[in-house]
Structure formats: C-alpha cells, structure tokens
C-alpha cells in the first residue's frame, strides 16, 4: 500500500506506524467515567468496509493523520481532516 502523508506525499506503508480506529471520540481530558473510557479503549466497530484510522509517518516527518481506507479492499480514500 501507498499511504498519503499530508506532509510528504505518497509513501510506502512500511514507513508508517498504525494507530488504530480514528472514528472513536476520545473523551476530553479529565472527563469520562470508567465505562466511557472502557468503550473508547476496548470496543471496536471493526467494519468490513470504510474505516477511518490513525497513521503516523514515523520513519519520515512524524506527522500523525487520519486516513480513510476500505478494510474490505484496502482502497485508500485519502486523508481526513
């Protein structure tokens, strides 16, 4: 796969580090009870289809970004702002 780093452009997937599901809303710092955090940390939609996820261009500019990708096809939808 080639991933579109917002800063460096298309780069091979081997330059990136995966950061998991980005569709989940992280509770604001200092908020959220145990159940909210449990759901945020441990439960996943895990869709077979469109997915938004975090990636970091870790062997490059170190930019984190949200990416749209289809988990059924690996088709890249592009960076999500």
């Amino acid at each position: 796969m080639m991933l579109p780093c917002p800063h460096c452009g298309d780069r091979d997937v081997s330059e990136f580090r995966y950061g998991g599901d980005a569709s989940k809303e992280r509770p604001a710092h200092g908020t959220g009870d145990l159940q909210t955090w449990n759901d945020y940390v441990f439960l996943f939609e895990n869709p077979k289809g469109p997915h938004t996820e975090y990636w970091q261009h870790v062997l490059g500019c170190r930019r984190w970004f949200k990416l749209a990708r289809n988990t059924a096809t690996n088709e890249i939808g592009g960076v999500v702002s």
Partner: peptide
Amino acid sequence: MSWLEYLLQMHW
C-alpha cells in the same frame, strides 16, 4: 515519543 506526538497532534 510517538505517544506524545499522537496526543499533541491528534487530541490536544
């Protein structure tokens, strides 16, 4: 390092 960058860039 990645964790700090993640929190700063994506959440805070």
